[in-house]
Design a binder for these strands. Structure first.
Length: 271
DNA sequence: AATTGTACCTGTCAGC
DNA sequence: TGCTGACAGGTACAAT
């Protein structure tokens, strides 16, 4: 489900809703999504805590509690958070938090690839340390991007998926970014001219900002915790559009595979 | 050290 | 209808 714009939408939704209710109870139905914690551990440390701040780093959701501890979630392919009222439920529910006011925050995950970490007060959030720069942050400058690209011996598309290179881009937006930039996904990073790097840099920011404004891309069962679906699906130009006519040059959109993952692009206008 | 392939888990869909 | 294989928004780790 989630790349940077989807995770950002989820975080904004959670932040606007959680007017810090207290966690009363934690119920775990499937413990193998827990990495450095357990049901007992969560039940010991979370009840009584208030979700003071919720933010995003790359594709990770970070919840900061009133005691200084943190719960970190990575949704991987199919994880989602959902507010549930009373006895309401959702398919593939893996755990939930019982909140003040007869509300629940459920975590559901069809494929169960998502992961959750609990960091106690004072513990460093070690799972976040290897992440590359935030592509929408002020310190992600063109100069910094140029320097990190020019020595990479990898085709540009799989490089955009590398979270140590830049955090938050996934398979949908990698294709859309390179389409907007007019760059072939198999173009080697080290061979890009500075003009081409600039086009990719601009496209990263422009596509991610547009997608956030649309609250992400609604594919499969993605929705934010209130059930709002992302509208960027209507603006996709190439992703899952193999065989369609390219809106820019009239060519035919292709699907190819790079490192076991689908890439969508137009050979007519991406070089 | 960096890049690429494999494993993880479970569901859906197309083709036979 | 049932089976099989391909594919799915991701990453950790092993192999190269």
């Amino acid at each position: 489900m989630p790349e940077l714009p989807e995770v950002e939408s989820i975080v904004r939704c959670l932040s606007s809703n959680i007017k810090p209710p207290q966690i009363l109870k934690v119920i775990v139905l499937r413990a193998d999504i827990l990495v450095n914690t357990s049901q007992e551990h969560l039940c010991k440390h979370l009840p009584g805590q208030v979700m003071q701040k919720i933010y995003r780093r790359g594709k990770y959701i970070v919840m900061k509690f009133s005691n200084g501890g943190h719960l970190v979630t990575h949704l991987r392919m199919s994880g989602l958070y959902r507010f549930l009222n009373g006895n309401e439920t959702v398919p593939y529910l893996r755990l939930w938090f019982e909140l003040e006011g007869d509300k629940k925050l459920g975590y559901a995950d069809k494929r169960a690839l998502g992961r959750i970490w609990l960091y106690l007060p004072g513990e460093p959030l070690s799972v976040l340390t290897k992440l590359g720069p935030e592509p929408l942050a002020a310190d992600f400058t063109l100069e910094r991007f140029q320097q990190s690209v020019h020595w990479r011996h990898s085709p540009i598309k799989p490089l955009l998926l590398n979270q140590t290179f830049v955090a938050g881009i996934g398979n949908i937006y990698a294709s859309e970014i390179l389409y907007q930039a007019g760059i072939s996904p198999s173009h080697y990073a080290s061979d890009l001219t500075s003009e081409e790097v600039y086009k990719i840099y601009r496209a990263i920011r422009s596509i991610l900002e547009q997608a956030i404004a649309c609250r992400g891309t609604h594919i499969s069962d993605f929705a934010d915790p209130e059930g709002n679906e992302g509208e960027f699906v209507n603006r996709l130009k190439v992703y899952q559009k193999a065989g369609d006519i390219c809106p820019r040059c009239g060519g035919i959109i292709q699907r190819t595979v790079q490192q076991q993952r689908s890439t969508y692009w137009c050979p007519g206008c991406q070089h």
